[in-house]
Design a protein around this nucleic acid. Sequence first.
DNA 1: CCTTTTACTTATCAAATGATAAGTAAAGGA
DNA 2: TCCTTTACTTATCATTTGATAAGTAAAAGG
Lengths: 142, 142
Amino acid sequence: MDQNMLFQKFVAFTAAVHQITYDMTKGVKSEMITPVQYKIVEYLAVSQPVTLSEISECLHMSMPNTSRELKKLTEKQLCEKVADDEDRRKQYIRLSPKGKAMMHEAFGQIESRFVERVQHMSAEELKDIEAALDLLHSKVFY
Amino acid sequence: MDQNMLFQKFVAFTAAVHQITYDMTKGVKSEMITPVQYKIVEYLAVSQPVTLSEISECLHMSMPNTSRELKKLTEKQLCEKVADDEDRRKQYIRLSPKGKAMMHEAFGQIESRFVERVQHMSAEELKDIEAALDLLHSKVFY
DNA sequence: CCTTTTACTTATCAAATGATAAGTAAAGGA
DNA sequence: TCCTTTACTTATCATTTGATAAGTAAAAGG
């Protein structure tokens, strides 16, 4: 019950999460987009509308680079910029219909892969899994 | 209790795991190394000795690129290549003492950050966390 | 007003990464 | 023995990503 053993499990677990995330998202991203651009669009899908600064901060990239990638995404018609009325320096970014469709497609594929893993389970098992997700999310990965 | 809600939690959870992994590993990697090179050395630390092909496959990079990065790591004296006696085409790769020291340092920092998160907890809580890690690892992230 | 700060853009440049073609050298058959 | 496959290397090139300098335009504060 030492913390060292718990740390070993933590490391092995996070490695597994990264591996499964890779497996489940592999191939879902459209070819018209680079990995960083996918990250941005994925972030937008969950958090829109956001400002350029927020994207820059949350995705750990510099403002100039964020601006550049966002410009490319806008040129590809995957997202739109809307100027804020209150503060006209700000730009609210959100997905375009095309961008939404793309992410809907992607999330659909990911969800079906998730369901494959989970469909054979009993209600009991699902409840345990839910509880475990909640516990770790609140106490370790917060 | 629907699977859709569970999927939402799964997505939020994996996002949190990625975020925390980023936080906990940020700044631990030596400046003499690129991100991909760190990935390789990290993999070596856990799995050595391995062949070049295994690294290539597990880290999803092409053989030529793996070979190149490994060459750079060898030049930096962070890992060593040992020819297999049975099959002299094969190269077993392992960390050098310097590479081991580097990863020991890195894992030490990560572990201390982990311990910060966990040290205030009761034995009961730690046991629950361990059980949750085991459950999710075996049933979802396998 | 005038200065400073904030939010973002444009332009470059360098470094890291990915992809492909073409090799070598050893092993494994037929 | 000769051919094929395997494991890896070298070379090269394009793309992606990261970093920095210098700008614009609006807001905020004196």
